[in-house]
Amino acid sequence: MTDDQSLTPNQQKVVDEFEKARPGLGAIAENNIRNNDKTGWAESIADTPSDELVVREGSSRNSFMYRRIGG
């Protein structure tokens, strides 16, 4: 994907969800999508149902609470 192409609706949703989770993360997500040849983000997003592309809270093994994209 090149910088002059528009994002797909699902890709834009991922960017928006990252931005909602923490301002500034949307730009990082967009960069990762556009650098798909190195990150694989575009394929992962294409393989994920749209209803699963939302911010959710969860906990890790050390009980640290965080926001993340996906299930």
Rank of each mutant, 00 (worst) to 15 (best):
G26C: 02
P23K: 02
S63D: 14
I69L: 13
D16A: 03
L25W: 08
A27G: 15
A42Y: 07
V15G: 10
R34L: 10
E17L: 03
K38N: 15
R61N: 08
I33S: 05
Y66I: 02
E19F: 00
S60I: 00
N10A: 13
N32A: 15
V15F: 01
F18E: 01
D3C: 10
R56K: 05
P23M: 03
G58L: 02
S59W: 09
G24E: 05
D47P: 01
A29K: 03
R34S: 12
F64Y: 10
S50R: 03
G24D: 01
S6A: 07
G58E: 03
D4M: 06
E17I: 10
F18S: 03
D16C: 02
L7Y: 09
R34Y: 04
A46I: 01
R67D: 08
A42H: 04
T48P: 15
N32H: 12
S6W: 02
T2F: 09
K13N: 11
N31L: 02
G26A: 01
A21N: 02
L53R: 08
E52N: 06
I45T: 05
E30Q: 03
D3N: 11
M65G: 15
N35C: 09
R56F: 04
A21H: 01
S44Q: 08
D4H: 07
R68H: 14
M65I: 05
P23H: 00
Y66T: 06
N36A: 15
R22Y: 07
K20Q: 09
K38S: 14
Q5A: 14
P9C: 00
A29W: 05
V55T: 14
A29F: 05
N62Y: 09
K38E: 13
L25Q: 09
S60L: 07
G24Q: 02
K20E: 10
I33V: 14
Y66L: 08
A21S: 14
K38R: 09
I33D: 12
E57G: 09
Q12F: 12
E57I: 07
G40W: 02
S63G: 14
V55K: 05
E30C: 03
I45F: 11
S59V: 02
L25Y: 12
T2K: 04
D4G: 04
L25C: 12
R34I: 10
P9V: 00
F64C: 14
S63I: 00
G71V: 00
G71R: 07
A29H: 02
F64Q: 15
R61E: 06
K13Q: 14
E57A: 04
E17V: 11
G58K: 05
R68M: 09
D37Y: 03
N35F: 01
Q11H: 06
T2C: 06
A42E: 15
S50L: 06
E52T: 00
M1T: 13
S44G: 15
D4E: 06
I28V: 11
W41A: 15
F64I: 01
Q5S: 13
T8Y: 09
N35W: 01
S63E: 07
Q11A: 04
E19P: 03
G70E: 00
